[in-house]
Amino acid sequence: MLELEGLRKRYGDRVALDGVTFTVRPGELYGFVGTNGAGKTTTMRITLGVLEPDAGTVRYQGKPVDSATRRTFGYMPEERGLYPKMRVGDQLRYLAELHGLSRGDADKAATYWMERLSVIERAGDRVEALSLGNQQRVQLAAALVHHPAVLVLDEPFSGLDPVGVDNLAEVLRERAAEGVPVVFSSHQLELVERLCDSIGIIYRGRMVATGTVDELRASRAERVLRVGTDVAAGWADRVPGVVSADYGKSTTLVLAADADDQAVLDAARALGPVREFTPLRASLAELFREAVADHDGDEDGSNQDAADPRGADA
C-alpha cells in the first residue's frame, strides 16, 4: 500500500501542493488526473524522492519510504529522459543495476522487457537512433526493468499509438494483478475511466475528489435522466425535484440530489406514453469538469503554473 499524506510544496511564493493525500492499495490501478500545473508531476517527484516536500509523508507498507525503499520503485518522468548516446540494452541493464539488481538479473530483465515491448532488435542501437515511439517503449522498459514494487508513471500513454496504448494497458493491468500499486497520470480521461480501479482528481495542489468512478458518481450533487416522450416541451418544468430540463427529441432532466426519480416517471406517464427512461451515467470527463468547477475560485490565488518549477515549459 502506498500512502501519500499531507504533501505540501512551495516554490517561492507559489503553492504547488497544498496538502495532497491519497492511498493506492496493492494491486490497484490509480488514475491521477488534473489540469496542467495542478501538481501531478510535483506529487510524483516527491513520491520518488526526486523532490523533497516541505511537509507531509510518503509511506509504503506503513513505513515512511527511505532511499533504499525508493530504489524498488519504478518511475517514468513526464519529461522523458535516457542517455541519447547509450545503447538501449546497456542503458536498461545499467538502470536495473542502479536499482539494485545483480548483473545477471539485470541482463535477464532487460532482455525480457525489450522483448515484451518489441524493441529487442534495437538492443544494440543508440537511443537517439530510435523513433520517438520506440524511445517511449524503452523509457517504459526503464521504469519496469527492476520489477518495481510500486509503479509511478507520469503521462505514460502520451505519444503512443493505439497498439502501444493497448500493450501498455495490458502491462499495467498485469503489474497490478501481481499486487503492485500502480499510479499513473493522464489527460485521456476515457482511458483512465476504462482502466483504473480508483481515481484521484487534483486541482491547484489539492485533491478535490478521490474514489472509484462509481463513488465519484454517487457523490455528485445532481443526477441526469433521459426521458423519451412525445409530450410537449415544458412538461417537466413544474415537476418537483427537477432542476433544469432540456427538451429535444427526448427530454434531458437534471435532478436535485434528493429528488425522487419515480415521481418524475409518474408525472411523465400521467401526460403520455414514456418510451425511454434512462439515468445517464456521467463520464469521468463530466465528473472532472464538475469537480474542478466546484473548487474554482475557492483558492488562495496560487497560480495555475504553481506546480512547475521549470518555468519554461508549463
Binding site: 517527484r45 526526486v50 519529461e79 529522459g81 526503464a142
Partner: peptide
C-alpha cells in the same frame, strides 16, 4: 549538462543520490 538536457537525471535521481 548532458544528463540535464536529456532529462535522464530525473530517472537517475529516483534511484541514486
Amino acid at each position: 549538462v548532458e544528463e540535464k538536457t536529456s532529462r535522464v537525471i530525473e530517472v537517475l535521481l529516483s534511484s541514486v543520490s
